[in-house]
């Protein structure tokens, strides 16, 4: 059974993303724990990939940094193992599908089950291709998190009715990255989804300021932040724990204001 529901028990969830191995494997373990301490309810761990097509420059660069010292899928599992010695915070992988396919679906999800990974988000696995991993993931207690975009429209019905864990609502068109303004009519999308499912709805893409978190927090069940966290890690390198804690705790507070 996935621990994802726990993330949504404490007000609006704050969901933080970082890329595994950026800047190092040890630091990723430390930063996940630091984020949890500061109030992060669920951590998305990015498995680095050579060609992160859905990412903006900030997360692209993090992938480059992690791959420069050859962070492998097994290293990422090792990070999870070490984190799990300290906490049972819900953890999901954010990964392009090829590293999972290459590792072998059976072997990958068995490992996820052993280590207590609760979900997987794959930006290149839309509803039509979810069958690649759906059964094997679920049988290992891993939710396949569905994404819904501003362009999804009539697809919302089938995506949402098939979803488990939570739904990742993409705030705007484009790749990941910090945006000064989110213009999408999120209210309309969220209410369309709520007609289909009672799953928690978390909004991501572009959110970086407490003001945005507060706005999204009023209408969604969770606020997802990636690039802004990665940017802090980029800026502070091996000394990012302090600034990360400060940022996450501000954002968690703002999400619930």
């Amino acid at each position: 059974m996935s621990k994802i529901p726990n993330a949504f028990k404490n007000g609006t969830a704050f969901i933080g993303f970082l890329t595994a191995g950026d800047p190092t494997i040890d630091k990723t373990v430390e930063y996940i724990l630091a984020m949890e301490e500061a109030g992060c309810d669920l951590v998305e761990i990015g498995i680095p990939f050579s060609d992160p097509m859905a990412e903006g420059v900030v997360i692209q660069d993090a992938n480059v940094r992690a791959l420069k010292h050859n962070t492998t899928t097994d290293d990422v599992f090792d990070i999870v193992r070490r984190v799990r010695e300290k906490t049972d915070i819900p953890l999901v992988f954010l990964t392009y599908i090829n590293p999972v396919f290459f590792y072998g679906y059976e072997k990958f999800f068995k490992r996820c089950a052993e280590l207590g990974i609760d979900g997987i988000i794959s930006p290149d696995l839309p509803y039509e291709e979810k069958g690649e991993i759906k059964d094997i993931a679920l049988s290992n207690g891993v939710d396949v998190i569905s994404l819904i975009a501003p362009t999804s429209k009539q697809r919302i019905q089938k995506i949402a009715s098939d979803a488990t864990g939570f739904i990742y609502v993409v705030s705007s068109l484009g790749v990941t990255g910090m945006r000064s303004e989110i213009k999408t009519d999120l209210n309309a999308i969220l209410s369309d989804i709520r007609e289909v499912t009672d799953l928690p709805l978390a909004v991501g893409f572009g959110i970086n300021t407490p003001e945005q978190a507060s706005e999204i927090g009023k209408i969604a069940d969770g606020v997802i932040v990636g690039s802004a966290i990665v940017k802090i890690i980029e800026q502070y390198g091996e000394n990012a724990a302090g600034p990360l804690k400060e940022y996450v705790s501000d954002m968690k507070r703002a999400s619930n204001e």
Binding site: D124, P126, E128, S146, A149, K153, Q154, V170
Partner: peptide
């Protein structure tokens, strides 16, 4: 083959 691409592009495809 297939359509392994972002949800944002699916309706457009």
């Amino acid at each position: 083959g297939g359509q392994y691409i972002s949800e944002t592009l699916m309706n457009e495809l």
